[in-house]
């Protein structure tokens, strides 16, 4: 048995290697890949979860695209990307740009605190923020304290404010992560690059755009992929804070999938929306990776 491993000609494949892959791939195929294929199939049917599935072709997709509530829920997701991705990345980059050569004592403590929102259940995070935004919660009490009673309101119950205020929770969850990621990246940039820029007479701003930003490309891609996928999924936070309301003002696709499949018994329609969401995420992730690859 063991002599086999002393010399092995390159052109012979030892099929027993595949045995090591089998357990992992069984779980993955049965519980992830098969359900995905099944959802894909269901997306072409009309099904209430009990009776026979009826093949309807692309009808569900056509209906989804024409449904104003669904298109606006996708629009909400893009608004949430501003709060989940763009804002935290800008905050993180600006702060990292300021930290180029500073060695801060107690950095590990700051890091541990800033990272805290990442480890908690979104249900817990949502409950904390529901209290902050509550009619008699800290935000309104603070506004009242400064004599701004007219401004204070039930933030999550407002048609105009619910979406941006849910978005701000996402910014709160993410900004520590982007800060830590970018500061770690900045510290890997060789100081010679900055010295060279100084010699060329670069100011702080041109230093940021010519040295810091291009060298953080890898970290920016990571942050974009991570935050954009979370912004597009985002089920837990919406479920616990607004449930998609008031009205449909904070409705997002994943909430629609849940409601359609488990409250309205429109399994075919929910599946087609699930496939659309999957395609949307794959497309955005590919675009992000392509844009940043080209600039190399």
């Amino acid at each position: 048995m063991s002599t086999k491993y002393i010399y092995r000609p390159q052109n012979k494949i030892d099929y027993s290697s595949y045995l090591y892959l089998i357990p992992a791939f069984i779980f993955y195929l049965v519980f992830v890949f098969f359900p995905l294929a099944d959802t894909f199939y269901n997306s072409f049917t009309e099904w209430n979860g009990i009776s026979e599935k009826k093949w309807v072709g692309l009808e569900q997709y056509a209906k989804n695209i024409q449904n104003k509530k669904i298109t606006s829920s996708i629009k909400h997701s893009f608004i949430l990307i501003i709060f989940y991705s763009i804002l935290p990345i800008i905050i993180g980059l600006l702060i990292a740009g300021l930290m180029i050569r500073v060695k801060v004592h107690g950095m590990s403590t700051y890091r541990a605190i800033l990272f805290l929102p990442q480890i908690l259940s979104m249900i817990v995070v949502g409950i904390a923020w529901r209290w902050i935004y509550a009619p008699k919660g800290p935000l309104n009490s603070g506004l009242d304290f400064f004599g701004l009673e007219e401004v204070s309101r039930a933030w999550l119950g407002s048609f105009d404010y619910a979406l941006p205020f849910v978005g701000l929770i996402g910014t709160w969850v993410m900004f520590g992560f982007t800060m830590i990621l970018f500061i770690a990246g900045v510290q890997k940039i060789p100081t010679e690059l900055y010295d060279a820029a100084k010699v060329d007479g670069a100011g702080a701003i041109s230093e940021f755009f010519n040295v810091t930003l291009p060298n953080l490309k890898g970290e920016i891609v990571v942050a974009l992929v991570f935050t954009v996928t979370l912004a597009l999924r985002n089920f837990d936070l919406i479920y616990i804070t607004t449930g998609g309301g008031p009205g449909t003002s904070t409705m997002i696709p994943s909430m629609f999938i849940y409601k359609k499949a488990f409250q309205m018994n429109q399994v075919g329609s929910a599946s087609s929306l699930g496939i659309m969401l999957t395609l949307l995420i794959f497309t955005l992730v590919s675009i992000i990776l392509l844009i940043f690859k080209d600039k190399k």
């Binding site: 892959l21 959802t39 488990f262 399994v267």
Partner: peptide, 30 residues
């Protein structure tokens, strides 16, 4: 170990890495 077909197997796993599992829970439930 020497495995033939690493790239397609990895591509398959990559799907699971980005997949919003909101889309598969319906099928899992049934």
């Amino acid at each position: 170990l020497d495995i033939f077909g690493v790239t397609p197997l990895f591509a398959l796993l990559l799907v699971g890495l980005v997949l919003p599992y909101e889309s598969i829970v319906i099928s899992l439930y049934y």
